[in-house]
């Protein structure tokens, strides 16, 4: 096991550039101890995908990523035969019998492994990231159940491939579609919320070292105030970081009306959100 305790998870993730809350560290530790897949949900931009990258780096594992989208299927997720190469091979060996050719073209050389097979065959420690699981069709969930259940894949022509070590599986979802109960059952569930003010301050300090601490404090207060407003898209950690970088680039020394109203577009992505925030933060006087 790569981690010895929850604290250990925290330090190692921090060394990989990911500051984890108690909830995140505990769940990662449990997932690695119990060998269960980890289902991560939460608003966009709170570091769901980033988490698996950090876990891979912290535990010295390879990261294999399966990006889900509508219409992803077995041949994109598990494996595919390289048809073009097989055809070439057949036409190259003109005078051999069918059985000879057959045993040859269905061999390792003509197999195109896709993420799931790659992760299972990998000799090293592996972190398998199945990103945006909710975007995939329902049928793929059934497929995942099978693979994540016993970590083996059967290829009719080659036989069954079983994982030598269990990959650490992370599934992420943005909840555009309800994942099936069966899939949820098999996973540990982690809902990543916006971080607490202290944690977010540390994150900003780590990722944008050039920002003055007092400025970072007020920045985070403003972001938290924005999150409390009924906006279409509440600003997330990645927006906070973008904003912090913008402030550094602008050379701002303090958050005042002018700076905020100039750079509000970095944090809020909809015009009506920006208008709403302007009204609530009393920025109207600057506009006129």
């Amino acid at each position: 096991m790569p981690f010895s305790s929850v604290e250990d998870v925290k330090t190692k993730l921090a060394a990989a550039g990911y500051l984890a809350s108690d909830a995140i560290a505990t769940t990662v530790f449990l997932a690695s101890e119990l060998g269960k897949p980890l289902l991560v949900e939460g608003p966009a931009g709170v570091g769901k995908t980033e988490l698996s990258r950090a876990v891979a780096e912290a535990s010295g594992a390879d990261l294999v990523r399966l990006q889900c989208y509508e219409g992803v299927d077995e041949s994109r997720a598990i494996y595919e035969w390289n048809h073009a190469k097989q055809l070439l091979r057949i036409s190259a060996g003109q005078d051999e019998t069918w059985s000879e050719a057959k045993s040859d073209i269905f061999s390792e050389e003509f197999l195109l492994p896709r993420p799931l097979l790659t992760a299972i065959r990998n000799e090293n420690r592996t972190v398998l990231l199945i990103d945006e699981t909710d975007k995939a069709d329902v049928e793929i969930e059934g497929l995942l159940l099978e693979v994540l259940g016993d970590f083996q894949i059967t290829i009719p022509e080659l036989g069954t491939v079983t994982a030598t070590q269990r990959p650490f599986v992370v599934l992420t979802s943005n909840a555009t579609r309800e994942l099936s109960e069966a899939l949820r059952r098999r996973c540990l569930f982690l809902h990543i919320e916006f971080p607490s003010a202290e944690l977010e301050r540390d994150i900003v300090a780590l990722k944008v070292p050039g920002l003055d601490t007092a400025l970072a404090d007020s920045l985070i207060r403003v972001v938290n105030a924005l999150r409390a407003m009924p906006l279409r898209k509440a600003p997330s950690v990645s927006e906070t970081l973008d904003w912090a970088r913008t402030l550094v680039a602008l050379g701002a020394e303090a958050l005042d009306d002018e700076v905020v109203s100039e750079s509000l577009g970095v944090v809020l992505k909809h015009t009506d959100d920006i208008e709403k925030a302007r009204a609530q933060l009393d920025l109207e006087s600057v506009l006129s």
Partner: peptide
């Protein structure tokens, strides 16, 4: 699962236990 969580984490740290049990028992936000 929750039992496993208690075994792995122990009962000493209440906040960790809370997060751990939540991971095992809660299924949606």
């Amino acid at each position: 699962d929750a039992g496993e969580v208690v075994r792995v984490l122990g009962m000493e740290n209440r906040e960790l236990l809370r997060e751990g049990l939540a991971a095992a028992l809660v299924r949606r936000g």
